[in-house]
Every structure is written in C-alpha cells, then in structure tokens.
Amino acid sequence: MGKYAFSLIDNVFADKVRADPNNRKPPTLIRQPQLGLMPDFDGVGSSCDKGILQPWARIRSYVDKLNRENKQGAKYKVIFVLRHGYSLHNYIEKGVKRFNEAGEEVRNDWRKEVSLEALRGAGCEIPRVLEDYLRGGDPNAAARVSLYDAALLPKEITLQIRDSGVTNNDAEDLGKEWFNWVEIDKFPLPDAIYTSPLSRCLETTKKVYEPAFEAHAGGAHKFRPIIMENLREKGNGDACNYRSTKEQILDQYPNYATEPDFAQKDEYEYQIQQAKDGEPTESNKEIEDRMRKVLNAIFDNDETSVVSLTTHSFSIGSLTKVIGNARMLDEGDITAFLVKAVPH
C-alpha cells in the first residue's frame, strides 16, 4: 500500500463553522448551500461550458482532468463525509450528567444494560415517546436499555424529540435532500460508498443514498456500499462502539460488501479491553493513524473520482485533521472536500 501526504484543495468548497464553547473539540461545520461548492471552482482553464453545466454537473470532469494531468503523481478525489443520524446513545450521552456519581455508574454499565430508572437518576430525561419505544409499546415490559452497537432512533421518535431542541438531523430527511440534490442540482452519485461497520452508520448509508441510486437503477452506479473496519468510532470501551458479527451485518444488509480481511467477530471489542488504569481507549494519534490508513487504502485501490464515507464524530475530527483542517459534523449531516494525495 502506498503512503500519501494529504491536503485540501482551496477555492473549491467554502465552509463556515461554529466554535465549541468549551474549546475542547474542533469547530463544527455548518452546512452550506450546494455544500459550499463555489460556482467558479475550476477557474478559467476548464473545458466545460459554464453556460450549460451547473457546478456540480462538472465536478467529476474537473477532477478527472486533475488526475489526467498527474502532476507530482498526485491523485484527487471529491470526498463526501457523512456522519450517522441521531442514535439512542447520542440522546443518552448528552442527557446523562457525567460528573455526578450516578452518571458515572451509568456510563460504566454501558457494556451491559441500564435501566430507565438509572438513567433518570443520572439526570437523563426520558420523554414518554422514547420510553414507549424502549418498552416496545408494552407498559409492563422491562425498562432496560442496551446500547450495544447502538442503532438509529426511528424518525417518528427523533421528530418528537427534535421539537424540544435536543436533536439535529434525521437520516431519512437527509436522504430526501440528497435525492433532490441529485435530481435538481446534478450532484454526482458517489462512485464508491464506504461505511463504518456500526449499525447506525450502515442504516444511515442506506437511508441517505439508496433512494437516489434506486431512481437511477440500470445506470453505471449500483448501490453497493463497502464496509470498512477502520471507519468505526474511536475505541473507548463504550458498548455503543462495538459492532455486530460479519454474518449478522450481511444478513441485515445483503447489498453491502466487506473488505477482504473483514473479521467475523469484532476484534476491537477485545483489543480495547486491556488498557492501563482500567480505561480502555484509543489515543488521538491512534485514531488519526487509522483515518490515514482509510485514505491510503482508498487512494491506492479506488480509481474513481467521487467517493463517500459514512462515519462518526471522533473519526471525522481525526479524518479532517489528516487532510489539513480538523472539523466536526452534527449527527445526520454531510460535507464535501476535494482532497489531493501526493505519494511520499
């Protein structure tokens, strides 16, 4: 596998950010119209007729042109980066007051199950609509919450919670937007889609991209996401960041493919159990190295011009740091970059 130095190409995508008020995280990208694609991104040297083609309709030809020129052996790709939609663990994580004793007790129990009573005791409000969902509609059912490989919350739940100002974007809503972007604004369908193996990313990928691909069935593009182990969230011992087995994943998502060396069982689940001070966690450097491996693999093995990555908050912060400027995304949001890779 080759090794590359990665950088962002300026004057293609504009972005705006909001700063973390506690100054503990990278700035969060605010989604721009057209995902920030500048109308004159390809300058005066483009062979495309700007009077006919919309900016997104010519992005692929522009990137192909850069790759043909092959200056310094450089490779270029438009990369859509998508964060999974709102998940049960997102709500609970934000709701639990971690610094009190009950909050820490709940956090430490995430590898198993927690009760609604324990969550409430930790300061997490559980709206009635969410409680009904967790009880499966049976008010007498055991009120236990498992966060293992935490799934997306159904849209009808997120919509009602969103009214309280707690949640962000819903994956299904983003899918409708993406469909319109393709049909109206001529966004290119990704040539390849890569996704984390965690269920919230697998399902987000399906909700966002499958409708647009189905509308263009029979064309050159097929909905065949590739599950990439290294796109998973930072390993920190939380059960929400462990994945299901390969067999379970492919049973639920038969249209997906896995990397050739994708393990049957979750090796990360065991690797991060052994760590000093009883706090199994992946360092920032380790997750940055993982994201660098993701980019190296894609630029080495994928000759296409437009790809998409569905992943998580820590992963996105590390990925964007590797390509030159650390950024975050809200749940269920998407951004785009033009990335240059130069062999070194």
Rank of each mutant, 00 (worst) to 15 (best):
R24Y: 00
N23V: 15
E69Q: 14
H89G: 00
V44Q: 07
V81W: 02
K25Y: 07
W56M: 12
V78Q: 14
D49W: 03
L37C: 04
E101I: 06
N100M: 04
V63L: 08
L66H: 08
Y76L: 15
R60G: 06
Q32L: 11
D42G: 02
S47Q: 13
V63M: 14
G95Q: 04
Q54S: 14
P26T: 07
K50M: 07
V44S: 13
P26F: 03
T28N: 04
L53G: 01
Q32E: 13
H84K: 09
A74D: 05
F41R: 01
L88V: 02
R24E: 14
K25G: 00
F80C: 09
V63A: 10
G73C: 11
N70F: 13
H89T: 02
P26Y: 06
K65P: 02
I59A: 07
F99I: 05
K71D: 10
K25C: 05
Y86P: 03
P39D: 14
L66D: 12
G85W: 00
V63C: 03
I79P: 08
G36F: 08
P26A: 02
L35R: 15
S87P: 03
E93Y: 06
E101S: 05
P27D: 15
R24W: 00
I52M: 05
Q72K: 15
G45P: 03
F99L: 08
A57H: 01
R83H: 03
Y62D: 10
D40I: 00
N23I: 14
Q32S: 08
K77W: 12
I30C: 12
L66C: 13
K77G: 12
H89F: 08
G73W: 01
V44M: 13
A102Q: 10
P27Q: 08
S46R: 05
K65W: 13
L66N: 12
R60H: 09
A57V: 04
L88G: 08
A57R: 01
D40W: 07
A74H: 11
Y76V: 08
T28M: 09
P26L: 04
N23E: 13
P55G: 05
E101Q: 07
K71F: 07
N90L: 00
S47Y: 07
G36E: 12
Q72T: 12
E69H: 07
L82N: 13
G45W: 03
G103C: 03
N67Y: 06
K25H: 05
H89C: 11
G51K: 10
E101F: 02
R31T: 15
K25D: 11
G43R: 00
I59C: 09
L66F: 06
V63F: 09
F80Y: 14
K77D: 14
Y62L: 09
N22A: 08
G45S: 11
A74V: 10
Q72M: 14
D64A: 15
Q72D: 15
E93Q: 10
H89P: 00
S61D: 13
H84C: 05
G85D: 01
D49A: 11
L29I: 15
Q32I: 08
K75W: 10
P27S: 13
G73L: 11
N100H: 06
K50V: 09
K65H: 15
S61V: 15
K77P: 12
R83F: 00
P33Q: 09
P27E: 14
D49F: 04
K50P: 01
F80Q: 13
L88I: 04
K71G: 04
E101G: 02
K94A: 09
E104Y: 05
G85H: 07
P55M: 06
